[in-house]
Nucleic acid binder design. Structure first.
Lengths: 165, 165
DNA sequence: GTTATTGCAAATGATTTGCACAAGG
DNA sequence: CCTTGTGCAAATCATTTGCAATAAC
């Protein structure tokens, strides 16, 4: 876990008069150990492997805390479960492209997008605080070559495309 | 209800070998009678006033159909319920700004945004099919004048800000 | 007459909550 | 100690579904 994240979490816990517990420690550790997005349940599974003692309820409660601390953000992938993104600490204004063919999520940052959002928002009489862009797109490689490594990987891993709610 | 919408719905029903029923007729009628966004339950309430006979289940099922026909789109307002937007038929590529102060949703269309999305997506190796942008923003009028007609309207109507899930 | 559609009530599934016990500070 | 945090199981709440009755075509 990045030390900046640990720092911010510690600060948040102190400021709010909360307590440092083993569960919170481990949940955060697992959540930020990779840059992959996850659902509450996926995180719970991962935490279980490290520590058979932590309950699902605590995972949900800690997720809420991490979101409040702005270490985690909820993103909409058009799913029935909430998806959490642990990468906003490093890439504060990134957005997402979701591949329609294989479900892969690509993160991208672009200054022009941010500027354009800012201008557009001003023109409407507001001050932009946060934006989220989701682009749903088809894979060009798949269209041209008839195959795409991401799709193959998806099929091999047996991970099925997320069901739309 | 716009005749273009009625036409598209009729076509969809025919193509799929579905049946024209009173319930579907009335649900669509109510859904497209205003340009306001709504949840399944809000639509159900409105339908009830017109017709005490239609069940919640049928409203849900018909909503699914209207989404498949691309007459309605599900949008993410960061809520625990799905919000439906009936305005994509008239403004096929609009996006949303949500006021943090009063919850008002402003729709906007912008060609530059569309072009930029297209470019960005190509550069990542994909072909953009659909995008959704949500801008969360503070109201400038409220900041400068200390008040904003939308906020006043929100308070008067007693409509509370949507709860975050 | 078939087959799709509806209403009802029960099921689902993710998330939240009340409460008694445990453990930080 | 005193208060916050945890685990458990039960509660919630939007949405979905099975099924028998009903209505399109």
């Amino acid at each position: 876990m990045d030390s900046g994240i640990k720092q911010r979490l510690d600060d948040f816990i102190s400021q709010r008069g909360l307590r440092r517990t083993g569960q919170r420690e481990r949940i955060a550790e697992v959540a930020f150990s990779r840059d992959e997005h996850f659902t509450a349940d996926e995180l719970f599974e991962r935490v279980c492997k490290v520590d058979g003692e932590t309950s699902r309820a605590t995972v949900y409660r800690t997720l809420g805390l991490l979101v409040e601390a702005d270490l985690l953000r909820q993103i909409d992938l058009g799913d029935s479960q909430i998806t959490y993104d642990p990468n906003f600490h490093n890439k504060p204004s990134h957005n997402h492209l979701v591949c329609i063919d294989c479900g892969k999520v690509v993160e991208f940052e672009d200054d022009n997008v941010d500027i354009q959002t800012d201008c557009l928002t001003r023109r409407l009489g507001y001050k932009a605080i946060r934006q989220s862009i989701k682009i749903e797109a088809n894979c060009e490689q798949l269209r041209i070559n008839g195959r795409c490594p991401d799709l193959i990987a998806t099929r091999l891993s047996g991970k099925r495309l997320r069901k739309k709610r």
